[in-house]
Amino acid sequence: MWKRISLVWLSTVLAGPAAAEFTRVSDEGTFRAIVTGKVLTRPLIRLQVSPEGEITGTGGPSDVAGSWTWRDGYFCRDLLWGKRNLGYNCQEVGVNGGKIRFTSDRGSGDYADFRLRSK
């Protein structure tokens, strides 16, 4: 019996708290309000996504530059990271408090979470 309780307790501790849910952003006006006046950060990355459709910042030692539009409920960006062309991709956007998540390939690919910080 104690062995069973210990295994349940250990699995609970190792699993940790459930991941926080992100709320999908499906309209451009809401997205613009979220990013206006903010810097999107994660380790070694600082980006600004302007309401006018421009992306600027740094990723590690390289500059990041690009443009974005809103299409059919998705953030669609064309991006250069240093000399590397990351190309065009439409991404699902989600928010959770002070975090924003971009999920590539219209929500079916990899995701990246950023903190939203005031400029």
Score class of each variant (00 low, 15 high):
K38R: 15
V39F: 12
L40Q: 10
L40N: 08
L40P: 09
T41H: 12
T41F: 04
T41N: 13
T41C: 07
R42C: 00
R42E: 11
R42K: 14
P43L: 13
P43N: 14
L44W: 12
L44R: 15
L44P: 03
L44A: 12
R46L: 02
R46N: 07
R46E: 11
R46H: 09
L47K: 07
Q48K: 08
Q48D: 04
V49Q: 02
S50A: 11
P51W: 08
P51Q: 07
E52H: 01
E52L: 02
G53C: 03
G53I: 02
E54L: 04
E54S: 04
I55D: 05
T56C: 01
T56H: 04
T58P: 00
G59Y: 03
G59L: 06
G60L: 05
P61D: 10
P61M: 05
S62W: 07
D63I: 14
D63F: 09
V64L: 08
V64D: 01
A65H: 02
A65R: 08
G66M: 05
W68I: 02
T69V: 13
T69A: 05
W70T: 03
W70P: 02
R71K: 13
R71S: 01
D72P: 00
D72K: 07
G73F: 10
G73N: 10
Y74D: 02
F75R: 01
C76V: 13
D78P: 02
D78Y: 11
G82D: 07
R84W: 03
N85K: 10
L86E: 14
G87P: 06
G87S: 14
G87V: 12
G87M: 09
Y88H: 12
Y88N: 05
Y88C: 00
Y88I: 03
Y88L: 05
N89I: 08
C90W: 10
C90L: 07
C90T: 09
Q91D: 05
Q91H: 11
E92A: 15
E92H: 15
G94Q: 13
V95L: 12
V95W: 15
V95P: 10
V95M: 14
N96M: 07
G98R: 15
K99P: 01
K99G: 00
I100W: 13
